[in-house]
Structures are given as structure tokens and as C-alpha cells.
Design a protein around this nucleic acid. Structure first.
Length: 441
RNA sequence: GGAAGCGUGGCCGAGCGGUUGAAGGCACCGGUCUUGAAAACCGGCGACGGGGCAACCCGUUCGUGAGUUCGAAUCUCACCGCUUCCGCCA
């Protein structure tokens, strides 16, 4: 949630900075609403105070057995509760309007984030190649992962089977069989093991269905409901049916660990990781990446989440990005690191690095990880705080990043490790997860 | 599916219509004592919001939401969650 103090204290400067995100703050409207809120709140609290004082006096009179005075006081208060109730109602209405504005506002970019309107203005930070110089030159006709996967066979059908996915579920679903399915599993195991054993993460198993409070905490709700799959669930006692949601990323489950909690400062920074499927409706992406495994309604991802103190969150963003890079390096996949410009960042982020992996068949780099520092944006929504050095409760910072998107990593391995005969060499680090298999045919 | 309970501050736990934001304990923060630490003793200490330059003042908050009342942690209803026993079960 956007920090209301930025609007109260210096709305002009804040509005100026938000322009970078193509977000226009109606400063006059906000100031008018805020003035209304302030007047109403003061009036309401004065009435509450009046009621409380008189009620207390009634109690005292009764305790002193002064019935006459008690009756007199009761007559005096009689009209107050009604006024209080009316004011409370009006105030709640105004506060709801203020809140709705704050909930719909995206986060403010950090000062060093480059200005820009879309992905064309992202700034490359660095590139990495297995041999330090360039991506492997492929001296035969390069195939994409569809051609490769559909040509590979198992005892029961193609190793990569889009038709079966469509039959079972519809477009943007895929079936894998045999060694390719195993490599998909090997990738997630390898990623998890690396983060746990080398990067200090706690491995977690989390729900794939979460409630509306969790989705609100991390920012998917209320604004992006159309991107989510809803699951109507009756309560155990047969009460009303409430919507829950399939997670679009395990960031939601992991980050909400600290919702509504005062986090013990000694446990910070927290490093959490989980391997889960992710479910996205992909509303609004019709026609994009319709072929292949790049954009699916269901895909696996190994996620990294950090819960940190405010002064260490930017250092942790660098660390997390490095963790994701490490996975690509161990897999020997060429990539580049992009610093997203203001116009390309997600709703909750203040600063984001994207990792883009080299896909030779497309002759381009494609996003395979996104690492963001959300600062206190999610923490304010969630009520996630810690006691700072001054003894004050303060929102924590939250970060999340993919480490990595498993399906896209499989695509990258297939395309980068393809051989002239259509077989795929298994990267060294995955072989122990695949019973020593070195080539998929 | 049947039966019975219970949700109070960072944690444990009293309170069950009126000067109760809530006893007591633990934890935490000062201080005394000590070579140091521990113990003991003294003092402090909930959260969220609003107003004020400030000292400070006010409001809200006892799972959540409605209701009864001049007044609700305390009474009523609904919802959410948890525990125990029986049954069933991946």
C-alpha cells in the first residue's frame, strides 16, 4: 500500500515522481477528500469523547448511590449515541474512499531507476556466457523447443505434447513425458537444492490455494483479480461460499507468512524458497506467445522471498539477483541482466532486475527471472512489522524473485543444448538428478 | 458425520455490564549491586489512528462482523479459527 504520508506531506513532489510510472495523482481531489476526512474524524472523536465521559459519570453516580444525578446524566446523554453512530458511518465511508485510492496506487520507483515508458528503455547491466565471450555457435539448423520436444519420443507418446494439453485442458496447457518430464523435475530439484545448500534459504512447502487476505497482502487484489483463477470454497461448517484463489506465484504464500505479525528482528533477514506450480489466467495476453511453453496457464517456479530490515533490502536485492544468476551459470545458459525502467516495473516494485536467458531459436533474450525490492509496500498492506533499534514498530521490507521459472528454463536448456540429430545434451549439474543420463533422445 | 469446549497485549494467563487498556507472570529496556556474568532489588514497557511546534491530549482496539445498552473483554446472533472425544479416511 502506498504510504499516505507522502501524499499528506508533499503531494506535489510525489505526484511528480509518480508521473514516471504513468500514474496521475489527482492532487486537488485527494486534498479535498483528506480535508473532509480530517474534519469528520475530529468531529466524530469529540462526540465519542463526550459519550464516554458522560457514561463514565453515570457509572460513578450509580456507584455513589446518587440516583437523582444518574437520571439527570442519562437524560443528558440520551441523544449522543445516535449522533456518534451517524458520524462513525460517514467517517468509515470517507476512510474507505481514501483507502481505495491508496490500494490502487502503484509503488514509487527508487531514485536510481531509469526513466522510461516500456521495456525498450530497460537498461542492460551485464551479460554472462559460459565461455566468457559469446553464446555457443550452432553450425546446423537451429530448432526451437517445440520442434525438438515434439520430435523426441517416449514409449507412450511425444516427450513434449501440446495436443494432449489442449485435449485435457485447453490452450496454454502442456503434457511432458519421459526424460523431458524428468529433466523438468530435475531442474526444480537442482534449483531448490542450490538455494538451500549454497544460498542459505529455508525450503518451504506452501498452499497453492490462498484466501483473499493473502492476495490483498501481496498486491494481486483488489486490482488484478482478472489475472487470477478463482476457487469457490464452502467453509467446513457449510457456511457461505467464499472465493479463494490459485497462486500466480509462491511469492504470495511465502510473503504472507509474516502478515499480521510483529516479526522478531533476530530472524531478519528471512530467506524463504519454495517450488510450486503457478496459475495465471493470462487475461490480456491473447495472441502473445501462443505457441510453445513460454506462456502457460500452469507453470512451475522456484521462488525466493526475502523479509528484511529497511536498511538492508537493497543489498538483499543484489544478493537475490546473484542467486538467480548462479542457477543460470551452473546450467551454462547465457543471459543478461536488465534493470527495468520506471514504465516497465510491476505494481509493487521499487526496483526490479530481470534476468533474460538466451534462446538461440528466437535469436533473442527472454525473461526467465524477475527480482524486485518492494520495500514497505506489501508490508504496509500486510501489517508485517518488526521492532527497530529505536524500539518502534516499523514495516519490514519484502523482496521476491524467481529462481527460476522452471518451464522457461527447460526451454532454454533444450534450445541451447540441442545437437544436430535433435537430441539434447543434459547439463552436467542435472545428471545426478537424472540417474546419470547424459543425452536425451 | 456426532458431542463438548475455547479464542484477551511479543508470549503465557486473570477478568465475565460501569473510574479495566485490562491483575499476575515471562520476555524486553533502563538503574542499583558485582571484577564480569547470573541472581536479587527498583523503575519502565501493548498496538493502531487522529490533533498539536511541543509537553501532551483524544479516539479505536480483548478472533471478525452485526446487535442490546447511557455504558460491552464481559450479554445476544452470525461468521472465522482452534482444541478434545467418537466415527470415517489419502
Amino acid at each position: 500500500m502506498f504510504d499516505i504520508n507522502l501524499l499528506r506531506n508533499d503531494i506535489a513532489a510525489t505526484a511528480e515522481r509518480m508521473k514516471a510510472r504513468n500514474y496521475v495523482i489527482d492532487t486537488a481531489a485527494f486534498e479535498a477528500l483528506e480535508a473532509e476526512r480530517k474534519a469528520l474524524q475530529i468531529q466524530t472523536q469529540e462526540l465519542q469523547q463526550q459519550r464516554n465521559a458522560l457514561s463514565k459519570a453515570v457509572g460513578q453516580a450509580k456507584a455513589a448511590k446518587d440516583e437523582a444525578k444518574a437520571q439527570q446524566l442519562l437524560a443528558e446523554v440520551a441523544a449522543v449515541p445516535e449522533k456518534v453512530k451517524a458520524n462513525e458511518l460517514a467517517l468509515a465511508g470517507v476512510q474507505e474512499r481514501v483507502n481505495a485510492i491508496l490500494m490502487a496506487m502503484p509503488n514509487l520507483p527508487q531514485a536510481d531507476v531509469p526513466m522510461g515508458k516500456d521495456s525498450d528503455e530497460n537498461v542492460e547491466q551485464r551479460r554472462w556466457y559460459p565461455n566468457g565471450k559469446a553464446a555457443r555457435t550452432i553450425d546446423f539448423e537451429v530448432k526451437d523447443h517445440l520442434a525438438l520436444g515434439e520430435a523426441l519420443t517416449s514409449a507412450t507418446g511425444p516427450q513434449l505434447d501440446f495436443e494432449a494439453g489442449v485435449k485435457l485442458s485447453g490452450t496454454r496447457f502442456t503434457v511432458m513425458r519421459g526424460p523431458l518430464a524428468r529433466m523438468h523435475r530435475a531442474l526444480s530439484q537442482f534449483m531448490l537444492d542450490t538455494h538451500v545448500n549454497e544460498h542459505g534459504f529455508t525450503e518451504c512447502y506452501v498452499p497453492y490455494i490462498v484466501n483473499a487476505e493473502s492476495m490483498t497482502g501481496t498486491g494481486q487484489l483488489p486490482k488484478f483479480e482478472e489475472d487470477l483463477f478463482k476457487v469457490p470454497m464452502p467453509s467446513e461448517e457449510g457456511g457461505e461460499v467464499k472465493n479463494r484463489y490459485l497462486i500466480p506465484t509462491s511469492e504470495v504464500s511465502l510473503t504472507n507468512f509474516v502478515r499480521d505479525t510483529l516479526v522478531d528482528a533476530n530472524t531478519l533477514p528471512m530467506r524463504l524458497t519454495a517450488h510450486t506450480p503457478c496459475f495465471r489466467s493470462e487475461a490480456g495476453s491473447y495472441g502473445r506467445d501462443t505457441r510453445g511453453m513460454i506462456r502457460q496457464h500452469q507453470f512451475d517456479k522456484v521462488e525466493m522471498v526475502y523479509i528484511t530490515k529497511p536498511d538492508e533490502s537493497n543489498a538483499m536485492l543484489e544478493e537475490m539477483t546473484g542467486n538467480a544468476e548462479k542457477i543460470l551459470q551452473k546450467l551454462g545458459l547465457p543471459y543478461r541482466v536488465m534493470l527495468l525502467c520506471t514504465g516497465d516495473m510491476g505494481f509493487v516494485a521499487t526496483k526490479t532486475y530481470d534476468l533474460e536467458v538466451w534462446l538461440p531459436a528466437q535469436n533473442t533474450y527472454r525473461e526467465i527471472s524477475s527480482c524486485s525490492n518492494c520495500e514497505a509496500f506489501q508490508a504496509r498492506r500486510m501489517g508485517a512489522r518488526y521492532k527497530n533499534a529505536a524500539g518502534k514498530n516499523e514495516p519490514v521490507h519484502t523482496l521476491n524473485g524467481s529462481g527460476l521459472a522452471v518451464g522457461r528454463t527447460l526451454v532454454a536448456v533444450m534450445e541451447n543444448y540441442q545437437n544436430a540429430d535433435g537430441s539434447i545434451t543434459v547439463p552436467e549439474v542435472l545428471r545426478s538428478y537424472m540417474g546419470g543420463l547424459s543425452v536425451i533422445r
